[in-house]
Computed example of a mutant assay.
Amino acid sequence: MTDKCGTLGSVPRSGADARRRLQQAALELYQERGFDRTTSAEIAARAGVNERTFFRHFPDKREVLFDGEADLRAALMQSVAEAPGELPALDALLHAFRRAAQILEDNRAFREPRLRIIAATPTLRERELAKAAMLTDALAEALRQRGVADRLAGLAAATGWATFHHAAQDWIDDPSRSLEKHLLQAFDDLRGLAS
């Protein structure tokens, strides 16, 4: 390829492209070598960038797998806020999860190996639990802002997030159905358990 001056050389890459290549390189290396035996320098080299570029995008090698969590949290909180006012707490959460499902559907190629890597790595499972706790707290706050009592908001958020996580795992295991269909089934199952 030619650069802007028409000479042979590397083409400048956008930050989004570098970030995507770093994520792909990390997934490949984590699957080949395991998370613990992979360094940020190796990820950067596989992605064709230097290690400083890696650290411009990610604070550490764990966060490559948790990229987008803040965006998902914000989208879920906004969707809870925008849910029709008459919906009870769990239905407001289902409304939010259904709207967020498309984000996950669009990233299935990343999500599937990501879950396997996390499941095989204790430090990543611990990190995932911490991220899930932050998401649950955010969902509880969004419900409180809708007027749900504090005690019920926390219970609904924890229950709703566990149900969403269950549906997402079912979707990974059974890709013949959409995440939305798995979500609807999981929430129907939850209602069945509660009745």
Rank of each mutant, 00 (worst) to 15 (best):
T2Q: 15
D3A: 05
L8N: 06
A16D: 08
A16F: 09
D17G: 01
R19M: 08
Q23K: 10
Q24Y: 05
A25E: 00
A26L: 09
A26N: 05
E32L: 14
G34C: 09
F35P: 02
F35I: 02
S40A: 15
S40I: 10
E42S: 14
E42G: 12
A44Q: 08
A45Y: 10
E51C: 11
T53N: 08
F54W: 03
P59A: 08
D60L: 04
E63F: 05
E63A: 06
E69V: 13
S79W: 08
L87R: 13
L93R: 00
L93D: 00
D106L: 13
F110T: 07
R114W: 07
L115S: 13
I117A: 06
I117M: 11
I118F: 01
A120M: 13
T123Y: 07
T123S: 15
L124G: 04
R125Q: 15
E126F: 14
R127A: 14
L129T: 10
A130N: 00
A132H: 05
L139E: 01
A140W: 01
E141D: 05
E141G: 02
E141V: 02
A142I: 07
A142F: 06
R144M: 12
Q145E: 15
R146L: 03
D150N: 06
R151I: 14
L155Q: 03
A157D: 02
A158K: 04
W161A: 10
F164V: 00
H165N: 04
A168K: 14
A168D: 15
Q169C: 04
P175H: 05
L179P: 01
E180G: 00
A186E: 11
D188K: 14
S195A: 05
S195C: 00
